[in-house]
Design a protein around this nucleic acid. Structure first.
Lengths: 337, 337
DNA sequence: TTACATCTTGTTAACGTGTGCATTGTATGC
DNA sequence: GCATACAATGCACACGTTAACAAGATGTAA
């Protein structure tokens, strides 16, 4: 049996109403009374019953953080940074509940306004759309990360992937490369499409014709990047550079290149995307684009709390800048003719 | 305003008690009545108010997953695998709340039997002890992962780190190495101590004297591994092999070795611990020990649910086997004399 | 017919907290 | 000295659910 405000009330010789008010620092209560009550609460090691409070206030103190999936296709560093970012804002004020959308198997009945004060969706796939729509329909405060869909959700925060890829591919072009291959992620992922868009834009703005044979799909996994690169290594002539839509795939690609007896960046330059925690320590260190996942998550969480606590209705979409990290895996190509 | 069991009761022409029983599939209620009530509930899109239920049942439906820290010193893959493992068991039955112990700053008042039906601590440091003790004192159902302290907590699940390191270092010795350096993690982490123990045991059982100058500290970070290896590279004669207490540190160490113009495993063999997601794709692929983090987490979660639901009082400690993964970073040393 | 068991449903209270309204006591203004 | 304002506290109810107990209906055995 644990201590309630009624116990405190009895000891202090006041009503439980006064205790409730005192502990909530209501201006209605005399300072002396507050002090006395707080002292007793402290002494009895009182802690409020969240269920009771939630019931009467119609608030759950839960923030739901939903990933497309927890198990398949979510990279560890991505997951970790997201949780860190959101958690740093939510902290001890709300409980952070982590979930995979795919766990619900299409039946979202358990997701209600009462179970979640607000929801953050870290979206990675078009498959999330039904879930996002469901949450929006229930008018649960909502922030969508990593995805741009204004008509679906009011607040969106995402990295400017396209601009980031544009920057790194332009960098390759400036280093003299023109036969630049692409290893895509998962075609159904919006991020994959955006990154391809940046690649295509860089090529077209530098008047380099696109060549479909230079495009491969790696599925955002190491193994996939390895296999995709193996296919690209069959090409004649070989590409002089390859942009990989994730660092993990870049690691796989480099592995394939090394195995075929070639060097990076001597024979083939490689660039990635994400700046995974290990990327700076590869040999050669990987030139890549840093996605501010933690920043995005932090900003998203702040926006969500603003919506919940101050009612912040108007739509907005925030793009967070990426950062080009030039390291050693992209070399300069000397014109051969 | 959302629909409650009273609304359903009104529509069905029964009492709200009957509705409650029907929805909980109580044997007291006639099947026809149940069907009717379920149909109405379905039609009205009813979902129960968890706060109210929690209040009356004195259960929160929350499982707390606590890390020593979310931000500093927890590797992403470790974090991800843990959450995956626990989540796969907890699923939609309970809400999984992720927290860092360091966020509470020593004030655990918000952690009570009422806010958490059970708690899983993924322990990485001695600093967790006060928290674990607190939870145990409150007699909240508790499972501690990754840490062995029978008198503190009833149920412990952990990898047999020491045996795993013993195995990989013995492997190095069998390949002819005897001058084997060690890069430790964080000295305050129990895991770091256990791994060092395995290293020392392997040496002593093969009658190789320990040499303090061969021990360096890398703090479980890439940068730390890099710096530690730089120090080891000052030694004369050089070690012929180095065991790193984590794969991340191994990557840093390899980087330092390459920078000094040496090769792996030609000049120096390297082994790691963890089998991070990228380890198989390094060049050379890293020989390491796989810690079954996800398995540990899954088993721990199952144990916790057993305690919660079936009352499972007796103490037990489970060791989960590690797996030696022999890849390319440890070479054979030919005797020189 | 009566007594009793069984099946099904209803009545009422309880969980712990917050809040609208009433009540008491005290100071202020005229 | 009285009306009024204001500060501090208490009373009673509400939130949505579950459960102990009561109670009605129906069947059955004596």
């Amino acid at each position: 049996m644990s201590v309630t405000i009624k116990d405190i009330a009895r000891m202090a010789g006041v009503s439980h109403t006064t205790v409730s008010r005192a502990l909530n620092d209501s201006p209605l209560i005399h300072e002396d009374t507050k002090r006395k009550i707080r002292a007793i609460a402290e002494r009895l090691d009182y802690s409020p019953n969240y269920s009771a409070r939630s019931l009467v206030l119609a608030r759950s103190y839960h923030i739901g953080l939903f990933f497309s999936t927890l198990s398949k296709g979510t990279s560890s560093s991505f997951f970790h940074e997201t949780v860190k970012g959101v958690h740093s804002v939510v902290n001890t004020k709300y409980h952070l509940i982590v979930n995979g959308i795919d766990d619900y198997d299409g039946n979202y009945a358990a997701v209600t306004r009462k179970t979640f004060d607000g929801i953050i969706v870290m979206s990675q796939s078009d498959g999330d759309e039904s879930f996002i729509r469901y949450v929006a329909d229930k008018s649960i405060p909502l922030v969508v990360l990593n995805r741009n869909n204004e008509q679906l959700s009011p607040v969106n925060v995402l990295a400017d992937d396209k601009a980031g890829v544009y920057r790194v591919v332009s960098h390759m072009i400036r280093q003299g490369h023109s036969r630049i291959a692409l290893i895509e992620g998962k075609q159904s992922f919006k991020s994959s499409q955006a990154r391809k868009g940046g690649y295509l834009q860089a090529l077209s703005e530098h008047c380099i014709p696109t060549d479909e044979t230079l495009h491969a799909i790696g599925g955002y996994t190491l193994e996939g990047g390895y296999a995709a690169m193996q296919r690209l290594l069959q090409l004649k002539p070989l590409p002089t550079a390859v942009f990989c839509s994730s660092d993990e795939m870049a690691v796989g690609a480099m592995k394939a290149i090394f195995q075929s007896g070639l060097t990076v960046p001597g024979d083939i330059s490689v660039a990635g995307f994400d700046d995974d925690v290990f990327s700076a320590f590869l040999s050669p260190a990987l030139t890549t684009v840093k996605r501010p996942v933690e920043t995005i998550s932090r900003i998203g969480a702040e926006k969500l709390l603003a919506v919940i606590e101050r009612g912040f209705p108007h739509k907005e979409t925030l793009f967070v800048d990426t950062e080009l990290l030039i390291r050693d895996s992209v070399g300069t190509l000397h014109k051969q003719e």
